[in-house]
């Protein structure tokens, strides 16, 4: 009897409709997706190859030096970088490391380039905030795997759909924190800047953004970490790198290889995290 009540509307075809929409998007915008995939793919390959052309020793030294100066001339992170990166090299995962790094780098840069302006827009307009907030919630709570499906539909397999999926997954913190950071700037400072006759963009660039910098950087740090985690997941759709090693070990039940590749990801994560954090505290 009560089941009848629930059944009174036949099953709504959300899944089917989503597919129809995705198909339509794929075919309609293929003129956009295809060249995007090609050029972007080439660009990423180029970046990876360029990084691979540099001898690993030099990269390790550069990272260690940067770590030393960025942490205020402390040895901890520098030593960790040397040992960690050397270990990855020693295990024969250098190439994968570079692929993963390229993916994370490009995904993060894109996330920031998109996220900060959207965050600014949100902070300036109540309407924009009301519209964007639920979208961000949606983007973040949807299981990350789901993004792989349209990514493949639009871009096939490889690096580019990996980037696409990680963009959707990793951008929200940057947007949120930019919005928050700007809204947190004290009313009196905003008034001061207006009282002297600042234009909107002068207020933004000379007062609000500099004041919000620490908060925005915290968001970017989160974005980078999310991008890294997504890049691992994206190996399922053929994105190269450490994630792929984990995945293939899983498929072949090679515990050892999987563990080592996993350690590689952890090392990369720690280095990236400390770097972004220290850039932040240094600016305070």
């Amino acid at each position: 009897m009560f089941d009848k009540l629930l059944d009174f509307v036949p099953s709504i075809p959300i899944a089917e409709k989503t597919e129809v929409v995705t198909d339509w998007l794929t075919s309609t915008f293929s003129f956009l997706f295809d060249p995007l995939k090609e050029h972007f793919g080439n660009f990423m390959e180029f970046t990876t190859n360029a990084l691979l052309a540099v001898p690993p020793v030099i990269i390790i030294v550069i990272v260690a030096l940067l770590a030393f100066f960025i942490t205020g001339k402390k040895l901890g992170l520098a030593v960790f970088s040397i040992v960690g990166l050397w270990l990855i090299y020693n295990q024969g995962f250098w190439e994968h490391l570079i692929s993963t790094f390229t993916l994370v780098l490009i995904a993060s840069v894109l996330s920031v380039v998109i996220g900060v302006p959207v965050g600014i827009l949100m902070s300036k307009s109540k309407i924009a905030e009301a519209i964007i907030t639920p979208i961000l919630d949606f983007m973040q709570t949807m299981p990350a795997f789901v993004y792989l499906i349209p990514a493949v539909a639009f871009f096939g397999i490889g690096m580019v759909p990996g980037i696409f999926a990680s963009l959707i997954f990793a951008t929200p913190p940057t947007v949120r924190f930019t919005n928050l950071g700007i809204r947190q700037v004290s009313q009196e400072l905003v008034e001061a800047s207006e009282a002297f006759g600042s234009t909107g963009s002068q207020k933004l660039f000379k007062v609000e953004l500099p004041m919000a910098k620490a908060t925005i950087m915290a968001g970017i740090n989160q974005t980078v970490m999310l991008a890294l985690s997504m890049v691992v997941i994206a190996s399922m759709i053929g994105a190269p790198g450490l994630g792929r090693e984990v995945l293939s070990s899983l498929q072949r039940a090679q515990v050892g290889t999987g563990f080592v590749a996993g350690i590689g990801i952890v090392i990369l994560a720690i280095i990236i995290d400390r770097f972004t954090q220290h850039v932040n505290t240094k600016n305070n």
Binding site: S186, E188, L189, E191, A192, S193, A195, F196, G197, S198, T199, Q202, K206, V207, P210, M211, K213
Partner: peptide
């Protein structure tokens, strides 16, 4: 018109000189 604020409202990310410059800088 120039304004002076109760809690000073100086820009913490700018030096004293840069604070004093602000009104002219934006012009």
């Amino acid at each position: 018109l120039s304004m002076v604020f109760q809690k000073f409202a100086l820009f913490p990310h700018r030096t004293i000189l840069e604070n004093a410059e602000y009104g002219l800088e934006i012009q």
